[in-house]
């Protein structure tokens, strides 16, 4: 199964970080993509991505509202930067697009 990883974070770390992560995971279920999202929110770093996760992913989704910690982990990967609000609104379109793009490679 195709794998996609990502990290979400937002200014107050209370809500959008988690909504964006959940929206991407739900979209992954819908399109049969293995989606793992690390959250960097008020409760700290959760669901942290391992080296294996990152290596196995076709691309990385990073929210771009505030700085993501340890971003150098993703050096050399294809990175998609999207705001958390956009992720929530367009999670299905994002995952669908990724699936189409990397299925053809």
């Amino acid at each position: 199964m195709m794998k996609v990883v990502g990290v979400t974070a937002c200014p107050s770390g209370v809500a959008h970080t988690y909504m964006a992560a959940e929206a991407l995971q739900l979209a992954g279920q819908k399109y049969n993509v293995d989606v793992k999202i690390e959250t960097q929110g008020g409760a700290g770093i959760e669901n942290e991505l391992s080296r294996e996760d990152i290596d196995a992913a076709v691309c990385v989704i990073l929210s771009n509202d505030i700085l993501i910690q340890n971003e150098d982990r993703f050096k050399g990967k294809k990175v998609l930067r999207v705001g958390v609000s956009e992720i929530m609104k367009k999670s299905e379109a994002i995952i669908k697009k990724i699936k189409q793009t990397f299925d053809n490679e």
Partner: peptide, 17 residues
């Protein structure tokens, strides 16, 4: 009060359903 933030994280996730 990390517990509170975890509760809110759960609420936020549930709102996507």
């Amino acid at each position: 009060n990390n517990v509170h933030l975890q509760i809110l994280a759960k609420l936020s996730r549930m709102l996507m359903h």
